[in-house]
Design a protein around this nucleic acid. Structure first.
Lengths: 340, 340
DNA sequence: TTGTATGCGTTATCAT
DNA sequence: ATGATAACGCATACAA
């Protein structure tokens, strides 16, 4: 990093630029702060303030570039219209896609997003202290966790979790309908005359939950199911390593069912490097429908997560202050592409 | 989305759960709020408060789970330790990678991140109104923009831009050293005996800037350079479409130099679909080193952006209140992989 | 129709 | 060594 050496003189003037507050506007017009406040908060009309006065206040406030101070508003007990978003694994493309969409919808609905995310790791309650210092209308958690420990101390803010959690978590939870997804894939594989399935998954309880549902659905349909489990990270490397080292091309399964798109893409890359053709010699499926699954070669058959409806539903609940605890499941449709 | 129908009874109790404030602690101990404040802000020691009192306050505050209210602190003029992050294209994997890393570093340094991002579009000053309502220590902008319009109204908060901007932007700017990158690639291609280069880029000024630098460096070394420009989005489709429809396999260039990894990956996919081998029949390069470039088949030769050092440098400047305007360039090292 | 006063949680400046 | 008090920006109950 090297300076270009010519423009460092014009320095930022720090806090010398005064913020425009209601006081500024009131002084400018020679009226009281409360009058300005009433106009700016929209309650003036119904109170009976003459529209000429309203116009003047609005004119000056616009001219001076007034923006309300949320800190002050929040302090007064008003909804902060600020949402905390917690992500367990930001490096995971699925989650970063999700965050992008979530943030955009929140923004469109007038909410600000405070982001707290990590890579590949459990979240500690200390990690959330920063969130607790803000006045939030709600917290949205992206990711599964088998314990509620991290959120135990957050009691004054409602939490929505998108992912699997513990049974009696004091939050509203949205979970993938794993059995339904498994049934859908089972039917699909049956039509493709798959007899022999191998599952490839990460060694974690939520992957196991998904894999177990798959296994049940496949065996119910008379397929034979074996399983490969690994704790290698990142997921892509897990899949690739499996395809390179573990996959046996002499007694291949018909299909490799992976619990995550990243694993599946790694598998495809590993197989391709070994000269094994997908889907001709072995089929591959994933889960999540990340952006790159459509763009890989071959494109990946996977399950789409219905982000738009899910997110809009949560935003609506936040707006309605509907913070009822409990879990709902949502359906992830199978998207058939080239890999299977 | 269907309810599971059994756990919606235990509703969230809304604001019935009182927040713990300094007042709560003061009441618990029968002391004044000021005393509590002094202890909690760390100024007690030097003032001469007995360590026993300090201990007691700290004990109670921990037991009650006190967290300072940033809104109140910010109102009092304290640094909010909150940073706004603006992203021009969150759908772009490069930016979402960047945001993840940035956020993690900010968090580690005690800063909160307020995220405002969009997909594929110019940002309007209205889009930033939400940011302006927060008391921010700084704003970090990810992405290039040939105009300062959107940020014109933000005058009380220092801005850092990572990307190309206009010459006299009142902010601190960090820009890719395009000529240096072009030189590096020129040398590299020379060693690979490439004579004929085709550039593939998006139709936007910052892509043109990069492509122009490349063209100059290549022609300087005696290579012939042609160029394909398109305004198709997303970038991946741009590259793929080019490879499918425009690329002429009978008079192929030695290498396709793309202004972005996404374009390059699309090119590779398109070529692969046509049965054209990369890098055997034609080489491909990108720019940015997104996560999937390493994972594509073949893996992509590209330029890495030095996020860690860049981000840590910016955080340090924020901490030191060093908001000097002007631009610095940073070097993006070439990473040679399979595609070229 | 508009102004005054109060309080949100915190910090800082006074007193005591 | 500690407690009152004011102030940050805003909203609102209460006066006028």
């Amino acid at each position: 990093v090297q300076p270009d050496g010519l423009s460092f003189s014009d320095s930022f003037k720090g806090s010398s630029i005064m913020r425009v507050t209601q006081k500024t506007i009131a002084a400018e017009l020679g009226v009281s702060i409360s009058l300005v406040s009433r106009v700016l908060s929209g309650s003036a009309q119904s109170i009976g303030v003459p529209s000429e006065t309203i116009r003047q206040v609005e004119e000056v406030s616009k001219r001076l570039g007034y923006v309300p101070n949320r800190a002050a508003q929040a302090l007064k007990g008003k909804a902060s219209r600020t949402i905390g978003v917690v992500v367990y694994d930001f490096k995971d493309p699925f989650f970063s896609d999700f965050v992008g969409y979530l943030q955009e919808r929140l923004h469109a609905n007038g909410y600000s997003t405070i982001l707290v995310g990590f890579s590949d790791r459990q979240i500690d309650s200390r990690d959330l202290n920063q969130l607790r210092q803000h006045l939030l209308d709600a917290i949205i958690v992206l990711g599964s966790d088998s314990s509620w420990d991290a959120f135990g101390e957050i009691r004054s803010t409602p939490v929505f979790r998108i992912g699997h959690g513990v049974e009696d978590e004091p939050c509203a939870r949205y979970e993938v309908d794993e059995p339904q997804a498994a049934e859908d894939l089972g039917e699909y594989l049956l039509r493709l005359h798959c007899k022999k399935v191998q599952l490839v998954r990460f060694d974690m309880w939520n992957h196991k939950m998904r894999a177990d549902a798959m296994q049940a659905a496949f065996e119910k349909r008379g397929m034979s199911v074996s399983s490969h489990t690994s704790s290698l990270r990142p997921y892509f490397e897990l899949g690739r390593r499996f395809a390179m080292m573990e996959f046996n091309p002499y007694t291949p399964p018909d299909v490799l069912v992976c619990t995550t798109d990243q694993i599946a893409l790694g598998v495809i890359k590993g197989l391709t490097e070994r000269g094994i053709k997908v889907p001709d010699q072995v089929k591959v499926t994933g889960f999540d429908d990340i952006q790159f699954s459509r763009w890989y070669y071959p494109s990946l058959t996977t399950f789409t997560q219905p982000m738009p409806s899910l997110i809009d539903r949560i935003i609506e609940r936040i707006r309605n202050q509907d913070f009822a605890h409990g879990s709902e499941v949502f359906h992830c449709p199978l998207v058939a592409r080239a890999s299977c």
